[in-house]
Design a protein around this nucleic acid. Structure first.
Length: 846
DNA sequence: GCGGACTGCTTACCT
DNA sequence: ACAGGTAAGCAGTCCGCG
């Protein structure tokens, strides 16, 4: 099902095909600059805006009224005013607005004075970054192909085509399933299908002279020399630049697989860095936004290199570094993104450091250096610097350039340029997509306050103190072992609810009197019956694309593995948006924040789940557990399962599926805590202590061994046999612990320090106590770092693992941890291995 | 002054 | 700066106790 780019006959002299990667703003030319990737993927084609597009915002005052405001017309940036008509989704009426056009984006907003926003009380669409405005106004599609005319600097989108097979699938989709918005589905499918090019790129890493390994160089105070820079490109070419220093003797680099260049002078080294940077359409770094690129730039300024010769542009307000010629991707920011971490990489890495991410995704990490950077030999320095550049590049090339593919797909879904994807979180991607749809439909984009004025209040109360509204239902599980348990669940329940029930900021509590009887579950909110909500359509279309097209394609065994893989990535990119689509509605910082929508979603979710449970009980089925969108049924018949599916679909229009069957499950009385063994012996563990990342390996390893024994059990009687094996296993390991033969690393708790030490003001948790000890002993932990510590006897109770000694270990404490860990699974089984004496001296069976 | 009951903080998890 | 719900361990506080 190979899709292709088509175009009319092209004269290579005048026109080229380019993929739109980024839109930048040039303050000197006062216009948008478009950056296209050439069709061979090797270079950037820069085209300045040919349409004289100018920044603007909207006002509800008339042109005449505005022209009388002297403060406005005398703004240095003021240009002119146009009258426009928009459709206001909140009032559901056309509105006349005035478009205030200025010369410079800084004339709109972002400063306390001298802007349109600072002069007028109320303006609209003033806080959209100019380059995004430009993209939406010209209906540009970042990540797509354009035919570029280099003689007159114009461009036009290339007509899209897809394979007949996919076209047939789309047709079939719109016929057979109840698509929310088939035009949107079709539009997205076409764009998502276009081929993804290979982008030539190079990674860059620099090292800065330092004597003290505890003092990290700072880009703001670039006092020390840049002593090396390494580049690795996507074709495998490697260059290492080294600064010659006194007292260092040159060594042979014959066996090094990189080009080694020595420089007598740092300035020459920097100029060479710029040369290499300028020869690639994309430069990839790890933390280059806040360190490498600003450090290089500031160092170059310090050494007197004129600004126009430095190809790096530092963001004024944010921590960003862009390039004059190509695009810069800071992978640190991308991997730090929670949606990417959790949904795209299924939580494979925990910390976003280069070492942690590359260890998890590539199976290799940073080179360990024993000495301060400044004291490394040329050889050792080159090896260290080059290794970082290598793994940085590999993070973009591994798995068939997964990361780059993912970024381009996210661009296509969100209509945002690549920097927006690399630097911002999912809420800003969703915002971008909504903004683009509003512009496309000539709708006035509401300010956050406009929505809140009409639908700000919530009517439900959260269970958790400090939360804004009520969430999902979690059933209390029936404790014990249950055989033949079937799990049924709703495929993306919340996005489906948003789509099916037309939940959108403008449709909930709409202005029509006639709609007020169309109530949401048992809430006083009502939903519009006259118009289709814009965010509901968008989320519905994304859901339909994923559920009805890309998930099936990714599992279609008749397709070549490479195509399936591509569909798998597309499916995952869509999932990132869907998973956040409900959450953003309940997030105050989101432009389209609508608490009434968010609580309507959860209310409907509760109602739907409750109805399914009631229906199951009517059918005399035993419901063992359920959480948000799932029900666990004990030994149901095939017809029961089908009946529940039919019930859910006919009553709510939402798909309830068979998810999986467990040979048996074990629940304690705790919610969100259980394990289940599937028929092929795979153990699913949810929430149990023994699975938590912070639990010491000693406990975790033992826990997994115990579960391995339990996974062999087929019926009640076989538990006895398993018990004996478990008993023997525990006995052996407890003895090792008592004899202090368990290595300290295995006893270490690993807990993330979510903020810097000085920000723990209310309490001092144990991992922070350990972090403080470490900070006084050579290592200064930073926010986001995982602290490794062991529990020891004595007043403080903890010590960083690397400072502790085996004889200090608080054995009793670890025995207690073992006890609580195994209690979670053995108690509901009625197994009392760990019968306790008064003294809590533990493990009677020894 | 001490200890148990309680609340709050922090982290990691589930959906 | 996507949401709320749950479990666990510990820190810190309050209250009763001749």
């Amino acid at each position: 099902m190979q899709s292709q780019v088509t175009s009319e006959k092209i004269n290579p002299q005048e026109t080229q095909i380019g993929l739109l990667l980024s839109v930048d703003y040039d303050g000197k030319q006062k216009k948008a600059i478009l950056k296209f990737l050439s069709s061979d993927g090797n270079s950037i084609i820069v085209i300045p805006d040919p349409y004289e597009h100018k920044p603007y915002c909207l006002s509800n005052l008339t042109k005449d009224e505005l022209l009388k405001i002297n403060e406005l017309t005398s703004l240095p940036s003021f240009d002119h005013i146009e009258e426009v008509e928009k459709f206001d989704p909140l009032s559901q009426r056309p509105v006349k607005m005035s478009k205030i056009v200025v010369q410079d984006p800084l004339g709109i907003s972002g400063k306390p004075s001298g802007t349109v926003k600072s002069v007028l009380k109320e303006v609209w669409e003033a806080d959209i970054p100019y380059v995004l405005n430009y993209i939406y106004d010209l209906n540009l599609r970042p990540g797509h192909y354009y035919e570029l005319n280099l003689t007159n600097n114009t461009f036009k989108p290339i007509p899209l085509s897809i394979s007949q097979e996919l076209e047939a699938r789309l047709k079939q989709m719109s016929l057979s399933s109840h698509l929310i918005d088939s035009a949107l589905v079709r539009d997205w499918a076409y764009y998502l299908e276009q081929p993804i090019p290979e982008i030539k790129r190079a990674s860059l890493d620099i090292e800065v002279y330092s004597k003290d390994p505890n003092v990290l160089p700072n880009a703001e105070t670039p006092e020390d020399k840049i002593i090396s820079a390494a580049f690795v490109d996507s074709s495998g070419k490697k260059i290492i630049l080294l600064l010659k220093r006194d007292n260092f003797s040159e060594v042979s680099f014959d066996k090094f697989d990189a080009t080694v260049e020595f420089f007598d002078d740092e300035k020459q080294l920097l100029i060479r860095i710029f040369q290499v940077i300028n020869s690639y359409p994309m430069i990839v770094t790890y933390n280059g936004d806040s360190f490498d690129l600003p450090y290089i730039k500031n160092r170059a300024k310090l050494l007197g290199i004129p600004d126009e010769e430095i190809p790096i542009k530092i963001g004024k307000t944010q921590d960003t570094a862009d390039l004059r010629y190509g695009v810069h991707i800071d992978l640190y920011r991308f991997f730090l993104n929670r949606s990417i971490q959790i949904y795209a990489f299924s939580g494979a890495y925990k910390e976003a450091t280069l070492d942690a991410v590359s260890n998890s995704l590539l199976g290799k990490g940073k080179v360990v250096v024993e000495k301060p950077i400044g004291e490394l030999s040329y050889d050792a320095l080159a090896t260290y610097c080059m290794n970082d550049a290598e793994i940085t590049m590999e993070l973009t090339t591994f798995n068939d350039s997964l990361v780059i593919k993912l970024m381009l797909l996210l661009m296509r879904i969100s209509r945002a340029p690549i920097e927006e994807i690399a630097r911002h979180a999912v809420s800003s991607w969703i915002r971008s997509l909504f903004l683009a749809l509003h512009r496309e439909r000539n709708m006035l984009i509401p300010n956050n306050e406009d929505i809140l004025k009409v639908k700000g209040e919530t009517v439900t109360r959260a269970t958790i103190k400090g939360k804004k509204y009520q969430g999902a239902i979690v059933l209390s599980p029936k404790p014990g072992a249950h055989f033949n348990v079937v799990v049924m669940d709703f495929a993306s329940l919340y996005p489906s609810v948003i789509a099916r029930f037309n939940l959108s900021y403008e449709t909930v509590r709409c202005p029509h009197e006639e709609c007020k009887s169309n109530k949401v579950a048992d809430l006083p909110h009502w939903i519009c019956t006259k118009v289709k909500g814009i965010t509901s359509s968008a989320i519905g279309a994304l859901r339909d694309l994923r559920v009805a097209l890309y998930v099936p394609l990714s599992k279609d065994k008749s397709l070549p593995p490479k195509e399936r893989k591509r569909y798998e990535v597309t499916q995952r990119a869509l999932k990132v948006f869907l998973n956040a689509s409900y959450g953003v509605m309940g997030a105050e910082s989101f432009q389209f924040y609508t608490p009434a929508v968010a609580e309507s979603v959860t209310a409907l979710g509760r109602k739907i789940l409750t109805s399914v449970i009631e229906e199951a009980q009517r059918r005399n089925l035993e419901v063992i557990y359920g959480d948000t969108d799932s029900v666990f049924l004990k030994n149901p018949k095939k017809e029961d399962i089908d009946a529940l599916t039919n019930f859910a679909f006919s009553r709510f229009g939402i798909q309830l599926n068979f998810d999986k069957k467990y040979k048996y499950t074990v629940f304690s009385k705790r919610k969100k805590n259980y394990f289940g063994v599937t028929e092929d012996g795979i153990v699913d563990i949810k929430g149990l202590i023994g699975k938590k990342s912070s639990t010491p390996d000693y406990v975790k390893d033992l826990f997994f061994e115990v579960l391995k024994i339990l996974s062999q059990v087929n019926n009640e009687r076989e538990f006895d046999e398993a018990t004996k094996n478990i008993e023997a296993l525990l006995k052996k390991q407890v003895e090792l612990l008592k004899k202090r033969q368990v290595p300290l690393e295995k006893l270490a708790f690993n807990i993330m320090m979510s903020k810097d030490i000085e920000d723990y003001k209310k309490t001092l948790p144990q991992h922070i106590k350990a972090a403080i000890m470490a900070s006084k002993n050579g290592h200064m932990p930073k926010a986001g770092e995982v602290i490794s510590y062991v529990k020891i006897k004595g007043k403080t109770g903890v010590k960083p693992t690397y400072l502790a000694k085996p004889e200090e270990v608080d054995v009793e404490k670890y025995l207690e941890i073992l006890k609580t860990t195994f209690e979670q699974i053995l108690e509901p089984l009625g197994l009392e291995l760990l019968e306790e004496k008064k003294s809590s001296n533990l493990l009677d069976f020894m």
